[in-house]
Design a protein around this nucleic acid. Structure first.
Length: 893
RNA sequence: GGGAGAUUAGCUCAGCUGGUUCAGAGCAUCUGCCUUACAAGCAGAGGGUCACUGGUUCGAACCCAGUAUCUCCCA
């Protein structure tokens, strides 16, 4: 049988994924005899396609889940998607537009029919893509946030929270997209740097409003108010009609004389007060700020503080309404151009300045966002936030890395009420029903609402047609925050076996950007509805950036297509590549080289397997590799222990690197080279048995990271039973063996000697196989005896002898306090050799002196811990020995 | 403007309560090798004033203060 020289993932990945599914390995069900391990996927947007962020995030989840499965836990990874109101609705609107259909011409029902059709057709592509990555989700459990059961959960929770008095309607400043006709969340708003104009407008000071001029402000330092004008800087002159005050800083000496005064809005003539507030920054603009509560968030808050009225001059579509009095019906930008001309004509325009500013635009429509007051539904947060904060503070839930705890705390301590309504159709419609008198009732269904409405109004004649359901839908997060409970049907049936068994889930893997929007809210919902946190650990991944540190985005075109990557490098290579450089919470600087490294690693493993497969066994041969086998067994134990520690700390990169080095360096470069028989020579049965066993253990340790290749080799290695897959093999347990540390240390010394010889070969330009001999001047002859075979094989030596003095014409090196010589007749440059030794001895003396200095410091000797002192004395002794050896070597030259 | 975190090799990062081998890894670099498992490889080597300035200490990458730069969060 000949095995391909390079591993080709495309040949095997689909096969194994299918087999795993056929075997039902990913299916999980409540099983009291096993320990549960559950993870809910952060539901990707149903309209989405796989991007690099998903790759990273889901690779990490899969590693955790696969390891748990191998550890014998009932591993349950619940997949699914969310309905992403705004993104999906925007996509459907765009699609309809292409077909020549305008959303405005459709009824709600018609539009939703289109949306569902679209969802059925394209939704879930992303889940299929996850399978290519190897994600071991229990696909039978796939959920969607807008499916009937989950919608039911959302409505129940809304009704419940309303009954508890936690949901209310209120006015709030929202990001209004005049083109899309909806409010947007902060995440859907993109700030754009632009050059804007700052218009300096003269507001006439109402003369009889001025207080008596006092001694201190009668000087003429008030240029800004010359001729009884107060100059205000604004970038939005069209909003002056909505002004309700002009604010100045009370500490601004330029305006002291205006305290308590009134000014007149240009063109309009309405009088408004000058108010004082330290919020106004003295250096910005003219230091006088027009206050327009309806059209600016900060102004709104200023207005609340100073009890000012609110004048909203804008319609939903961005045109001016009749409250503006002037320019009614004009678009906000058209009105701006007109008013600037009129202001100038009337002599109110002092000057125009350019300045760099940031304009908020809609992610979906590109329109400039209008801060706008509107009536929205809110959820009170204080009651929910307190226990959710405590859960993280007490480490009941651990954030990885823990630096996010600070952020979490700050946010939870300053939490604001959650605006849960969205002016969209795609989503769960708010179950509030308005009565003809304008009051409303909240109920799970229209029928229930009618009963309530009759009761509330005292009007038994009320009919369904008299009720009008709220037009808005709920924020998508209002579905997602229930996810860890709702996927196990914990609202419909709070005591079902699944939810009781799998909730709380164990680990959550997600991005720090949604720590507040999602993670915190899930904690709140979990505590509110199940009195238990939804998960124990939250692993926060970083953002995947390109090598230049730019965020990967479609518009930049700097993101590789994940599926192309998988096709090219194999899912295992890509998974490893993603993990090589992704410490928790740090951004991942993605570089194709990382994926290459991952691919190379799969190939390395493949070739190790190839080597062992090529061996012929000779049963008559004695066991020839006891030292190598004992050493690697010890090494394996140590690595397993280290690996488990990394996993426990959620250090995924380090975990992978541990196995990577174990396989590449220890197993391939050292172990296999030690036991490898000469070309076409047979191997003894005992060595082969151990080697195959080691390889199996390595496959198990690697499986969570590289599921496909490990399964392939697992089956190629030997005949397997029908259920015998590495996917469900028992995770190797680290069993600390007595004397393991000593075995490892002794072999390290032997390998250091090997490296010394190889270095000599390199320096002298000798080939790797030129037969050499080695002479050693050492106190530890036992080491050379014990590891004679290993050293001779790896260093290609014919003989190792112990000597009392350096042989003539040889190159020396020092290893572990002993001196070694490679006799090289006729190839020695005495001068160079002397120079090298002198350099080395000088270095050693310097080191000895620094240790000596430490030890002769009385305070050090008095204060240092005994073990530290002991170490220093040992260092001194070693250094002395080395110096002596080197000096003798020099003398011998 | 307020808050949090960071700054260690060319790059990405480790470095646990200050003291093991005068600071580690992977990648990259350099040198030599197509040595019948692997050139997607093998062997070896070089590379750091631990951002800067002070302080505490017998001893500082680590603790403290200040400075600089960067990132994120909130406004």
């Amino acid at each position: 049988m000949s095995i391909a020289k390079t591993y080709t993932p495309a040949d095997v990945e689909a096969k194994w994924y299918q087999r795993w599914q056929e075997q039902g390995f990913f299916k999980a069900k409540a099983n009291p005899r096993k320990q549960p391990y559950s993870v809910v996927i952060p539901p990707p947007n149903v309209t989405g396609v796989l991007h690099m962020g998903h790759m990273l995030n889901n690779t990490i989840q899969d590693v955790l889940v696969r390891r748990a499965r191998m550890q014998g836990k009932e591993a349950c990874w619940v997949p699914g998607t969310d309905h992403a109101s705004i993104a999906t609705e925007a996509k459907v609107v765009a699609l309809l537009k292409e077909k020549g259909i305008d959303k405005k011409d459709l009824t709600r029902e018609q539009f939703l029919a289109h949306a569902w059709e679209w969802k059925e057709k394209y939704g879930g592509i992303i889940l299929e893509q996850l399978k290519k990555l190897g994600a071991s989700c229990d696909w039978d459990r796939t959920r969607f946030t807008m499916e009937p059961e989950l919608t039911d959960a959302v409505l129940r929770v809304f009704v419940d929270l309303h009954q508890k008095g936690l949901i209310y309607r209120g006015i709030r400043m929202v990001n209004w997209d005049p083109q899309g006709g909806t409010a947007l969340s902060d995440e859907e708003v993109i700030p754009k740097d632009t050059m804007a104009k700052m218009y300096h407008l003269r507001y006439e000071v109402v003369s009889d409003s001025l207080p008596v001029v006092s001694e201190q402000n009668n000087t003429d330092n008030q240029q800004l108010t010359t001729n009884n004008y107060l100059t205000v800087a604004t970038s939005r002159p069209e909003t002056i009609m909505a002004d309700v005050a002009v604010a100045v800083n009370p500490n601004d000496p330029r305006y002291t004389h205006l305290h308590g005064a009134k000014v007149r809005i240009p063109l309009l003539g309405r009088e408004i007060p000058v108010i004082l507030d330290e919020y106004v920054s003295i250096d910005f603009g003219t230091g006088a700020l027009k206050v327009t509560p309806a059209h600016d968030l900060n102004d709104y808050e200023l207005g609340l503080k100073h009890n000012l009225p609110v004048i909203d001059i804008l319609n939903n579509d961005g045109t001016l309404n009749e409250k503006a009095v002037l320019y009614v019906g004009q678009d906000r930008f058209a009105a701006r151009r007109t008013i600037v001309k009129d202001l100038e004509a009337a002599g109110h325009l002092d000057k125009v300045e350019e300045y760099a500013s940031i304009v908020q635009t809609s992610e979906r429509t590109g329109a400039v966002i209008e801060p706008r007051l509107s009536l929205q539904w809110f959820l009170k947060m204080e009651h929910l936030a307190k226990p959710a904060l405590a859960a993280v503070e007490s480490d009941e839930i651990r954030l990885h890395p823990p630096k996010f705890k600070n952020m979490y705390r700050v946010w939870m301590e300053n939490v604001r009420d959650w605006c849960i309504s969205r002016q969209l159709w795609w989503g769960q419609r708010i179950p509030a029903y308005y009565l003809p008198d304008g009051t409303f009732v909240v109920a799970l269904s229209a029928d229930e609402a009618l009963l309530l409405a009759r009761e509330q109004s005292g009007n038994a004649e009320l009919q369904l047609t008299d009720l009008r359901q709220d037009e808005d839908v709920l924020d998508t997060w209002f579905s997602s925050w229930l996810w860890p409970i709702s996927v196990f049907d914990g609202f419909k049936d709070p005591d079902n076996a699944d939810v009781n068994y799998f909730y709380p889930t164990n680990d959550l893997v997600t991005a720090p950007e949604i720590l507040f929007f999602w993670v915190a809210r899930m904690i709140m919902a979990g505590l509110e509805y199940r009195k238990q946190v939804p998960f124990r650990n939250v692993y926060l991944t970083g953002i995947v950036r390109d090598a230049q540190g730019r965020k990967m985005s479609k518009s930049l075109g700097n993101s590789p297509d994940p599926l192309d990557l998988i096709a090219q490098y194999g899912a295992d290579g890509v998974r490893a590549g993603m993990l090589f450089s992704s410490p928790a919470g740090n951004d991942l600087m993605f570089d194709i080289k990382l994926v290459e490294q991952g691919r190379n690693f799969t190939n390395k493993l493949w070739n190790a397997f190839r080597l062992t497969q090529g061996w012929e066994v000779d049963a008559t041969l004695p066991f020839a590799n006891e030292k190598a086998v004992a050493w690697f067994a010890a090494k394996l134990q140590a690595a397993q222990q280290e690996l488990d520690e990394h996993f426990d700390k959620f250090r995924m990169s380090d975990a992978l690197m541990t196995v990577y080095k174990l396989v590449w360096d220890d197993f391939c470069s050292f172990y296999l080279e030690m036991v490898k028989p000469a070309y076409q020579a047979p191997i003894d049965a005992e060595t082969l048995r151990h080697t195959t066993g080691f390889l199996e253990t390595l496959l198990k340790l690697l499986h969570p990271f590289m599921p496909f290749i490990t399964e392939e080799i697992w089956h190629e290695l030997t005949q397997r039973g029908p259920k015998e897959y590495v996917c469900v093999a028992a995770w190797p347990k680290a069993q600390p063996a007595a004397g393991a540390a000593d075995l490892i240390a002794r072999m390290a010394k032997a390998l250091d000697i090997v490296a010394g010889v190889r270095n000599v070969r390199n320096q002298k330009g000798l080939g790797p196989n030129k037969p050499l001999t080695l002479a050693a001047k050492t106190d530890d002859a036992a080491l050379l005896q014990d590891y004679d075979g290993v050293i001779r094989k790896l260093a290609a030596l014919t003989e190792i002898t112990v000597v009392d003095a350096a042989p003539a014409a040889s190159v020396g090196f020092v290893s572990g306090g002993a001196e070694f010589f490679v006799p090289l007749e006729g190839q020695i440059d005495l001068g160079a050799e002397k120079e090298r030794l002198e350099k080395e001895v000088g270095y050693a003396r310097g080191f000895r002196d620094s240790v000596l200095k430490k030890l002769s410091n009385e305070k050090f000797v008095a204060n240092a811990k005994p073990d530290v002192l002991e170490r220093e004395r040992q260092k001194l002794a070693d250094a002395e020995a080395k110096i002596t050896a080197l000096e003798q070597g020099l003398a011998a030259l």
